[in-house]
């Protein structure tokens, strides 16, 4: 085979690197959020200074995760970026539409439990994963 010349750092390697970077930031963010959520009760007995520090840490690591996600998106090729952005668009749509009806269901006691923000987070995660799988299979 002749003529074919690949870029110095291949596409797969670049995407793998940015995926690992994003996974690390996501792991750190989950850990920082867990620290912020459970630390006040289990670790420092609701001391305000430590709680403020944990909140600041979670927000700072969250900002790092956002940047890593942005870099990851920039590394994807045009089809994979389209699939990713389509999945994000559906997820944002769900995040905008669902909370108010969910709150109404809680207000009028249609559902027997509290409408917590964690439920919305889980729904968004699930929506994103399903949309991503659907998009990937669509172009297979």
């Amino acid at each position: 085979m002749s003529q074919l010349k690949s870029p110095e750092i291949g596409y797969c390697l670049r995407v793998r690197t940015s995926t690992i970077r994003l996974a690390r930031w996501t792991g750190l963010w989950v850990a920082a959020t867990a620290l912020m959520s459970f630390g006040p009760v289990f670790l420092w007995n609701k001391a305000v200074v430590f709680t403020l520090f944990a909140v600041g840490l979670s927000v700072a690591v969250g900002a790092g995760m956002i940047l890593a996600n942005k870099n990851y998106l920039a590394e994807l090729d045009e089809l994979q970026r389209k699939v990713y952005l389509d999945a994000l668009a559906i997820t944002v749509g769900v995040a905008v539409i669902v909370p108010i009806p969910y709150k109404v269901l809680e207000k009028y006691a249609v559902i027997p439990f509290h409408a917590d923000v964690e439920h919305l987070m889980m729904l968004m995660s699930l929506t994103f994963v399903v949309s991503l799988i659907y998009g990937t299979r669509r172009y297979r």
Partner: peptide
């Protein structure tokens, strides 16, 4: 040219799925 999808993808700096 007897190129595979993966080789073409490498040369065009995209994923094999995109070539497919």
């Amino acid at each position: 040219r007897n190129w595979t999808q993966a080789e073409l993808a490498d040369a065009l700096d995209v994923s094999r799925q995109t070539i497919n």
